[in-house]
Nucleic acid binder design. Structure first.
Lengths: 185, 185
DNA sequence: CACGCCATGTAACTCGTTACATGATTTC
DNA sequence: GAAATCATGTAACGAGTTACATGGCGTG
């Protein structure tokens, strides 16, 4: 009953949004899905083969001028049904994010508060960076791809990233204060 | 150079906070670390063995009345150094949470907005549940374990979970509105 | 006597990453 | 001719889950 092999769905989904080769799919993921999904070539190519085996996709080799040959994949009717059925299924479980900072924090009584505070500051900087990246992508989509039929949904997923990242940033600030006051005791 | 095998650090850390058997560690993780770290017996027992092999921990078998024998693990000086060195290292990378809802949303142009809205509502309910759980644990710690020397750090990690979960909840509400207005167009 | 809790452990499996291999073309 | 980009792929490894196996004790 448990739904697994999300990679299949991710790739089928990308086929419906206009990305037809393993290479362009990887680029798309790195550029836009990266905040909630990532994937390596080591997964992409074998999974594409699997999709063809299962009849969810079809391949054709396309030669290009000035570039190496590429394999273009297209979703089949059966693949569309498979994707749709997954899309309609509610998410059963919230993701549990393995968070190295929180794991360290959990055991931080062991060490100087100043070290812990530095850890949080470094984490904060990374959050700022991430937030900037998301906002950059969002602006890019609004400027360049706003007419793309998938664009509103892309924006929505980016907003999720921005909101939760900002919440984490605020937590950093609050926590630094808490640690300072713990120090004084 | 890359830091891996966090399980080792998690278990060493738990040894310093007073959990000395595989079984109690698992219980602790399920009860309190669960929002940012989880682990299975299939990881715990082999890793405990590994820690002993590396000299980071020592074991002794303790017999109990009315309960089966248990193996009690204790951190060694070398283990403490190993843990400390990890605690001091800054986190290099933010976690990337694989989020099934966002993946579905990304491809949701394919389907009725009403189906998508239902998805978000279900997700929202799960967020509420999660938030309640965190707040419950927090209250419990404040009431029962406030004198425990690790308690302030436990609270901090819980606050992270509460903050980011609430941000996600607000996003759900906003996104539902966005989807309603998309429908009208 | 069945169920639940305490307690430890392993084997098979799945998922995903990393490193490697190959090779064409274009641009500097 | 070196580097960057386009393009596809595999093998080895690592992390983690699941299912299974075992067995004692206490409670209803």
């Amino acid at each position: 009953m448990a739904q697994k092999n999300y990679t299949q769905y991710a790739l089928l989904g990308l086929l419906t949004t206009g990305y037809h080769t393993g290479y362009t799919m990887k680029q798309m993921i790195d550029g836009s899905l990266n905040h909630f999904w990532k994937i390596s070539y080591g997964q992409i190519y074998p999974t594409l083969k699997l999709l063809v085996d299962k009849g969810y996709a079809e391949v054709s080799v396309a030669s290009q001028q000035g570039k190496p040959d590429k394999k273009e994949y297209f979703i089949t009717t059966s693949g569309e049904a498979y994707l749709k059925q997954w899309l309609e299924q509610p998410v059963h479980e919230l993701p549990i994010e393995k968070n190295e900072l929180l794991l360290k924090l959990f055991f931080s009584r062991q060490q100087d508060h100043s070290t812990t505070i530095t850890q949080i500051e470094i984490y904060y900087e990374k959050l700022v960076e991430r937030c900037d990246t998301y906002e950059g992508i969002k602006k890019m989509i609004l400027a360049e791809s706003c007419q793309h039929k998938d664009a509103p949904f892309w924006i929505i997923t980016l907003d999720y990233g921005i909101s939760t990242t900002q919440a984490a940033m605020e937590w950093c600030i609050k926590t630094k204060e808490t640690l300072h006051s713990l120090k004084e005791e």
